[in-house]
Each structure stands twice: as structure tokens, then as C-alpha cells.
Amino acid sequence: MSERREHRTAVSLNGLREDDPHLQPAARNPQLVERVIALTLLVGVVLIIGFGAAYWVNAAPWTLGATMGGGLFFLGVGLIAWAKYLMARGPFVEERHVLATSQEDRDAFAAAIVERGGGVVKRRRVLGGLVGGGLGAFGVVALFPLLRSLGPLPKGTLFHTDWRAGSFAVDITGRRIHVSDLAVGSIVTVFPEGTQNTDRGQAVDQTVLIRLSNENFTTQKGRESWGPMGYIAYSKLCTHLGCPVGLYEQQLQLLVCPCHQSMFNVNNGAIPNFGPAPRPLPQLPLYIDAAGYIRSQSDYHEPVGPGFWERS
């Protein structure tokens, strides 16, 4: 024992006696606290074992979560309580060392960069320029093919849909829409025939076909022949952010975008009258062929969906 103490005194800078108040537990009744903590930890251990059992028998997810979560929770509480109430209560202190170093060190560091490094470059400007230029050029050159290979160029794809002169309007199942299909006040989402199951068809070509009564309907100038027999078609892509404008209020004659509540007046060229959408929904010119099917006269006359730079 005395040998140990000698050794310590020789090396140590500071020490505390076992009975120093800093080293005492914060709890006033450590025996009781220890028992409570032991109980808490025990509950945790039991629950963790329960988690294993629940997993083994493939119990319902909530059983797994309850046993695992509860177990970890109780273990955590016990461990913290141990640290908080039974370990040395402190407080302890340590010095903060100044992080900044001496001025000489800084000067030496700066000198190393400026004089040693800078000197090299200064003497061989051409070499420095070439290395820098080459790396810079590589950076720029590498960026382009990297970006470029990420995807095709937009070209004109945003300006067109797959609606053509004479495209049949079909629903999601591919069934052609006949003039007698819809009652007044009915709505159906249509696609140009052949695209109803393609990504592009669903994302770009989707169109709402509504049958309206003619009262209160205002025909837009130049679109007199676009909505035969009360059938009218608007792009289903909101002009705000491209969500499908699938919400049709039959009495108010509004198409509403469920995402940000832009509202388009169906009776008046789908001009927005509420919300953030800036433009009317583009209208698809329709005609009814001899057999009574709804078909498109042409593509939309303007790009569908949200705005972008190249759009006029």
C-alpha cells in the first residue's frame, strides 16, 4: 500500500481522496437509488429478451417495437440515472487552452506558403500557368460530358404532346370515348390512343374530358369549333407545378388542383380564378367523327404544364 502511494505522489499532479465531496454520489440515499436503478435496468433487460422472443415468433410490428423501444428506453434511463445520481457529482473543471499559436509559428507557416511556394511559381510562371491551366481545363471539360451524359437535351419535347390530328380519346383502359358515353356533369381522364399505358402518356398527354351543358359556357375566341356537343377537353397538367388537375366541381364548374388549390373556371376557357397558377389550362380542340367518337383536331396549341424559360 505504501509503495503504491509513493508511486502516485511521484507522478501525479493532482489527486482526490476517495472521500472527497466531489467524488460522492449526488443521491442522498445511494442504496435506495441503486435499487431503483437496478429495477429499471431489469425491466429493460426483460423487455429486450421479450423483443428477441417476439422476433422469434414473428409477432405483430407493434409488439416488436414496444419491446425493443421499451427495453432500450429503460436501459437508457437506468444508465443515465446511474451516471447522474451515483457517479462522482463534481463539478469538475478543465482549463481551456488558447487555440491560437504564437506569432512566430504563424509567420513561419505563412512564409512557407508565400516564400517557398510562391517563389517556385514566380520563377517558373509558364510551368505554373500550364499546370493550373491544364487542371482548370480538365475541370471544365470534364464537367460538360458528365452533365451531358446525365440526360438528353430538352429540344422541343416540352412543346408537344402526343395528341395529333385525328387521335382518338381513350380512357385509362384504352376504350375509345363515344359521344354518348358521358352524361352532362361527367368527367373522364383521356389519352391519345396508344399512350394510355405509357409514362409519357400519363405524365404529359393526360387530358380531362368533361361534358358540359351549354348554358353559362363562354366560348373563347378562335375556339368556336373546339368543344362539340358540350364535350370540352383541357390539359390535366396544372400550369403551376404540373400536378394532375383531377378535382372537378360540377356545380361551380371549377377544376381544382389538389396540390396548391389553383382553381380553373371550366366554363370560361379554364382561366384560373384562384391560387398560384398563372395561365389557363391549355384546351384541346376536339371533333366528333362520323361514328360518334371523340377525337382531337390537332395537338395543343401551346405547351402544357408548368412554365419554363424557353416557353414564350
Binding site: A183, I187, V188
Partner: peptide, 9 residues
Amino acid sequence: GNMPRFTGN
């Protein structure tokens, strides 16, 4: 009310 009719579709 405002709900569309679903008939032929």
C-alpha cells in the same frame, strides 16, 4: 352537389 356524375365512364 359538386361531385361529378360517373355514368358511362
